[in-house]
Design a binder for these strands. Structure first.
Length: 520
RNA sequence: GUCCCGUUCGUCUAGUCAGGCCUAGGACACCAGGUUUUCAUCCUGGUAACAGGGGUUCGAAUCCCCUACGGGAUGCCA
């Protein structure tokens, strides 16, 4: 085994990329990269009825989103192409002819009804239901007669019936089965189109595949394929059959409990690094005490043999947490760039160009309060809205302070004469460049001459204002927040005041002060 | 039904191949506390597992057998 490792992911383009498929792709990719080998993509589109170009595009897009790249395959080419099975039909035909000539394959003319009938009979006898091999030993004359009568048949593999097949599995160890338990499977359909097991073997052979990581549902296929390799006088790749990803109920993951489509996670604003990291963890662990790691770190340790043998359940809560964890590590610039596609209509497009500092400060204020990028659209709404309405929680807090309207009016008067930053869309570049939000206790105040009051100074003045009037600070803060944002949660209140700027802050305080029917 | 595979906290897992370092470690979730103008972040602590039964051994989560349960396959789908 001195050959350079070659691994492949071979999706069939019959729908979106499923989480399970993504994990399979990821493990093959990681194994190839970790071993310094080649990773290629092969498209198994022999089911013409269900395959579509659209699905193929979506699958490639999903792989790219996850950061899984390929050395050979669609849109990339390579020395072992073509990489679409429907473009390799002449290769399969060559192999089929060879197998027939050697007596390892035979033509079968059984109708669907006849096959079904044979199955029933075997099952009734307590045996494994399968094609009953009725045309396995046709004489030449019988075969010619059937072909004349029924047209071309399908090509079936002549399974050796007296052999125990051992399949060395990198994940499970040696697995074995009595080949008589397996049927004489169809290799080529009557119309000449190969089936999965046949095309897969031919391609793995022709493409020099050395290792295959795939779902456990292929274990039985593994036996069939290994025998075919044998008949072809070749070594099969090293297989690793890994368990499926299950849903919360322990059954196969279904759309009901979670999205199974990888791109749906993109659209919901999960970070791709997190999705990558999380699905890697479904069956493999980085170390005993760390769950979050970079791709590079993973590649230093990844080995196919270490993939787990147990089916794992998909847990959206942990994925979300992980997405949030990655979100928090993003630099300010990266964060803004990632958030941008998710906040159309909430943050004016122009703001990204004319007041990038404001946008950055606003977005950063939610970096520790979000897990998904899509959350920024909901959370940032108050900042650029024409006006805000208190939500239910905010109303409740307001109701607890009957004096709030008067305080708000007075506080508005104070702010009106304070040196606050300008409000959007006025130019406030200087303010945002000087003060970096979110402000926090462990972040030192910027040095130099401030162009206006910053959050700290605003807070100090507000505290003084409250003390002067004998208002408990805590009771002042909630109505102010309700007036400014309409909510009870969010960034530090004085970050909010700062972001809003003088004109809008004053406006909103007065709107609520006047609007809540001040008792005489 | 038949064949194949699997079984450590609620979930993902470390430990199993080379039996003692395991009164079983970490993470998510959950609960309690701390920080705080809210929410969140952050910090501290807590609850919680070797499926069951037989062996082998001085000693078993780790090796063997059986049972139970779960998953997969049984397609001219992949």
């Amino acid at each position: 085994m001195t050959a350079r490792p070659r691994l492949r992911f071979a999706p069939s383009p019959t729908g979106p990329l499923h989480l399970g498929g993504a994990r399979t792709a990821l493990y093959n990719w990681a194994a190839a990269r970790a071993m310094g080998g080649t990773f290629l993509l092969r498209i198994e589109d022999t089911d013409q009825a269900r395959s579509s170009e659209q699905s193929l595009r979506i699958i490639l897009e999903a792989l790219r989103w996850l950061g899984i790249d390929w050395d050979e395959g669609p849109e990339r080419g390579g020395d072992h192409g073509p990489y679409l099975q429907t473009e390799r039909l002449d290769i399969y035909r060559r192999y089929a002819d060879r197998l027939v000539a050697a007596g390892h394959a035979y033509e079968c003319f059984a109708t669907a009804e006849e096959v079904e009938e044979g199955r029933q009979r075997l099952q009734a006898a307590g045996e494994r239901p399968m094609y009953d091999r009725r045309h396995r030993d046709l004489s030449d004359a019988e075969r010619d007669a059937l072909r004349r009568e029924r047209g071309p048949g399908s090509l079936r593999f002549r399974m050796p019936l007296d052999q125990v097949q051992v399949l060395p599995d990198l994940s499970k160890g040696d697995v074995s089965i009595n080949l008589a338990e397996l049927d004489d499977w169809v290799m080529v359909r009557p119309d000449g189109m190969p089936t999965y097991n046949f095309a897969c073997v031919v391609d793995d052979l022709e493409m020099g595949i050395t290792h295959v990581v795939r779902g456990e549902e292929h274990l039985m296929n593994g036996f069939k394929q290994a025998v075919l390799f044998e008949r072809l006088g070749a070594e099969p790749p090293r297989y690793a059959h890994i368990p499926l990803i299950l849903g919360a109920g322990g059954k196969k993951l279904s759309k009901r409990e979670a999205s199974v489509d990888v791109l749906e996670y993109r659209d919901k604003g999960y970070l791709p690094e997190a999705v990558f990291n999380y699905i890697t963890l479904l069956g493999w662990s980085f170390s005993g005490d760390r769950d979050v790691f970079t791709k590079a770190e993973m590649l230093e340790r990844f080995r196919i043999e270490d993939i787990g043998t147990k089916g794992s359940r998909f847990d959206d809560a942990k994925l979300r947490w992980m997405s949030g964890d990655y979100l928090r590590r993003l630099s300010a610039d990266e964060l803004v760039e990632r958030v941008r596609p998710f906040v159309h209509g909430v943050v004016p497009d122009a703001a990204f160009e004319t007041q990038p500092g404001l946008v950055r400060n606003a977005v950063r204020c939610y970096q520790e309060r979000a897990e998904l990028l899509a959350e920024f659209a909901e959370k940032l709404g108050w900042l650029f809205a024409d006006r805000v309405e208190p939500d239910d929680d905010a109303r409740k807090k307001l109701a607890k302070s009957p004096d709030a309207p008067r305080w708000l009016a007075d506080y508005a008067a104070l702010l009106e004469t304070s040196a606050l930053p300008p409000s959007w869309p006025d130019d406030r570049t200087a303010a945002d460049a000087f003060f970096e939000l979110p402000s926090s206790a462990d972040r030192p105040a910027p040095a130099g001459t401030a162009p206006c009051l910053g959050p700290r100074e605003l807070e100090a003045r507000c505290r003084a204002f409250a003390e002067e009037r004998g208002i408990p600070f805590g009771q002042l803060v909630h109505p102010v927040r309700a007036a400014l944002t309409g909510t009870t949660k969010g960034p530090g209140l004085f970050d909010v005041v700062f972001l809003l700027g003088r004109r809008v802050a004053v406006e909103r305080l007065r709107a609520l002060a006047g609007g809540s029917a001040q008792p005489a």
